[in-house]
Structure formats: structure tokens, C-alpha cells
């Protein structure tokens, strides 16, 4: 019993540590305070600024588009790479696995810096073409897609594909109708992971992005150093919106898994 109470207190304290800053910021985002603690009155001005400032709007849309684009690219080549690697000889498979592991364990700073040196310094591709940025983000995400598709391929029953071929399907049709549906859940979770990594990335973006373009991360990092209060408090609103969005997504996922379990019974 003592252990239970201690455990409960411990968990609650950790939760307070994790959520207090986010929730306090969320509270102040609905006021006209220019800093925490200086509570004055309820106001939605931060939200108005967030949606009406061109710079902020462009930055948010740009981040989302970049994340979607790079994740799509990463999912496409990562999934195909996993399928190709799975059906190749052991040596080729080991080659894929080894190279794939490098960006996973590497520090983002090193990945970003080395991508910048190769693409911008050696090959001379201009940062303003967005090519280094998109390739950089794809380097970050594709290995995780590969890693989430691979286990699904291993779990698959190989005889289904053989059966499809025996029944007259061409290999391409069998691949599309038999293999892809079976690994679809891995592809989807790989894509989701790619989106999360891209949205959260700071280092690859700083080293490869055009000077005039900002992602949420690079923008916020610069804004917190600056003294532009109006932008700073508008970012509290952005933080609150993202928190609510994530909370909503988690709730939906939970409800769905509960419902799935009930329908199984």
C-alpha cells in the first residue's frame, strides 16, 4: 500500500514536470500578458496575430508542406527499398541494413552538416533551390520507414505471393495486390513517423535551408532569442494549438483502440 501511494505521488510529480510549462503557457496564451506572471485580462489577440501575420502563416504552411513532401518521398523510396532488400540475397540485405542504420544512430548535427558539405559545398547545389533541404529531410526520415516496413515483410506468409503467381497473376500485379496490402500498416506508421521527425527537426533544416525560409523549429529558436514580444506571445498560441491537436489525435487513437478491442470480444 505504501509502495502504491509513493508510486502515485512520483508519477504525478513527473507529470507536473512534463506538463506544467505547456499548460501555464496555454493559460497565458489566452490573455494579453506580454510575459508569464503578468496576468491582465482575457484576450484572443495572440490567436489573431498568429493567423493574420503573413510571416507566421507562411512559416507554418511551409513547414507542413515540407514535412508532407519529404515524408512522401521517404515513404516511397524507403518502402520500395525495404521490399527490394527483403527479396535480395543475404549480402545485399546486409548492405541495405548497414547503410540504413547510419542516419538512425548518427547525431542530427553530423547528418545535417555532412549533407550540407556534400550537396552545397562540393556539388554546388544552391540552398535556395530547396533541393538540399528536401534531400536532407528525406535522409532523416527514410531509414525509419525502412525499419517499420521490414518487420511486416518478415511476418508475411510467403506462400500467398506464390499462390497468386500460380493462379496467373503477373509479378507486378501480385506485388501490388498481395504484398503491398500486407505491409500497408508498416508503410502508414513509417509515414507518420517521417512526418513527426520532419516537423520536429531543427539541425538538418538549419544546415540546408534557404536563408529566407523558416520551419517552425528554426523560426521559434530565433524568435525566443529576439525581443519581438508580439511574435513571441503569438507563438504561445501556436504551442497551445499544436498541444490541442496532438491531444485530440491521441484521444481519437485511444478511443479507436478501445473500440477495436470491444469489437474483438
Amino acid at each position: 500500500m505504501k509502495k502504491k501511494i509513493f508510486g502515485l505521488i512520483f508519477i504525478v510529480l513527473v507529470l507536473v514536470f512534463i506538463y506544467a510549462p505547456i499548460l501555464i503557457l496555454a493559460f497565458y496564451s489566452f490573455t494579453n500578458a506580454s510575459q508569464i506572471g503578468a496576468f491582465q485580462t482575457f484576450s484572443l489577440k495572440n490567436y489573431v496575430t498568429l493567423f493574420n501575420t503573413e510571416e507566421l502563416r507562411e512559416m507554418i504552411i511551409g513547414t507542413v508542406l515540407l514535412a508532407l513532401g519529404a515524408s512522401f518521398l521517404a515513404t516511397l523510396i524507403g518502402s520500395l527499398g525495404a521490399i527490394g532488400s527483403f527479396y535480395s540475397s543475404k549480402r545485399v540485405n546486409a548492405f541495405f541494413n548497414t547503410l540504413n542504420e547510419i542516419p538512425v544512430i548518427n547525431a542530427d548535427v553530423v547528418s545535417g552538416f555532412s549533407a550540407c558539405i556534400l550537396l552545397v559545398v562540393v556539388l554546388g547545389i544552391g540552398k535556395e533551390t530547396f533541393i538540399p533541404l528536401v534531400i536532407g529531410e528525406t535522409i532523416l526520415c527514410a531509414p525509419f520507414v525502412y525499419l517499420s516496413v521490414m518487420p511486416k515483410l518478415k511476418q508475411m506468409d510467403p506462400s500467398l505471393y506464390e499462390a497468386a503467381l500460380d493462379l496467373g497473376a503477373t509479378p507486378a500485379v501480385a506485388l501490388w495486390k498481395i504484398i503491398v496490402p500486407q505491409v500497408a500498416s508498416g508503410i502508414v506508421s513509417g509515414f507518420m513517423m517521417a512526418i513527426t521527425l520532419c516537423l520536429d527537426d531543427y539541425f538538418i533544416a538549419t544546415y540546408t535551408k534557404p536563408a529566407t525560409f523558416d520551419t517552425i523549429s528554426t523560426y521559434v529558436v530565433n524568435a525566443t532569442k529576439g525581443s519581438h514580444t508580439e511574435i513571441k506571445t503569438a507563438l504561445w498560441a501556436l504551442s497551445t494549438l499544436i498541444f490541442l491537436l496532438v491531444l485530440g489525435a491521441v484521444l481519437i487513437m485511444n478511443l479507436k483502440s478501445v473500440r477495436d478491442e470491444e469489437s474483438k470480444r
Binding site: I24, T196, D200, V221, T224, I242
Partner: peptide
């Protein structure tokens, strides 16, 4: 993990 780290660190 799903909330942008820069916004969390700002908080």
C-alpha cells in the same frame, strides 16, 4: 514527443 521541441523549450 509529438509537440515541436522548440515550442516546449520556449514554455
Amino acid at each position: 514527443m509529438w509537440i515541436n521541441f522548440s515550442l516546449r523549450i520556449t514554455a
